[in-house]
């Protein structure tokens, strides 16, 4: 659920990234993020200004309101936390394949 920052959760990875694609996290990138998250045994969270969205929830990702230039933190925990975070950062870096 899209909500407040939870101090208690221990994350194994915390990375800062920037939304670089032109249209920001609109419907298609959000769907790509969801598909990616489903492939890993990990809890993968995106955080913006203290607000969090679980990467498995489309509407929460959209509601995070991330146009181009937004600063985000990837937070990951679980068995494949590292791989999942890396893959997600890669998706952002490739600008979701937008040309």
């Amino acid at each position: 659920m899209h909500g407040k920052h939870q101090e208690s959760e221990p994350y194994e990875v915390e990375w800062e990234i920037w939304v670089e694609n032109r249209l920001g996290i609109h419907a298609r990138p959000a769907a790509q993020i969801m598909n990616l998250a489903a492939q890993f045994d990990a809890t993968l969270i995106l955080e913006k200004d203290g607000l969090q969205a679980n990467t498995r929830e489309l509407l929460a990702l959209l509601a995070l309101d991330c146009p181009q230039g937004t600063r985000l933190v990837i937070k990951a925990s679980g068995a494949e936390a590292w791989q999942a975070a890396q893959a997600l950062a890669g998706l952002f870096a490739r600008k979701f394949g937008e040309t």
Binding site: H2, I25, H26, A27, L59, L62, A63, D65, C66, P67
Partner: peptide, 21 residues
């Protein structure tokens, strides 16, 4: 609730997806 959440979105393009919801 979703509508309220989307009302707070500033980016007009992302905000517009409320139509799909």
């Amino acid at each position: 609730r979703v509508r309220e959440l989307f009302n707070r979105i500033e980016d007009p393009y992302i905000k517009g997806r409320i139509q799909d919801v």
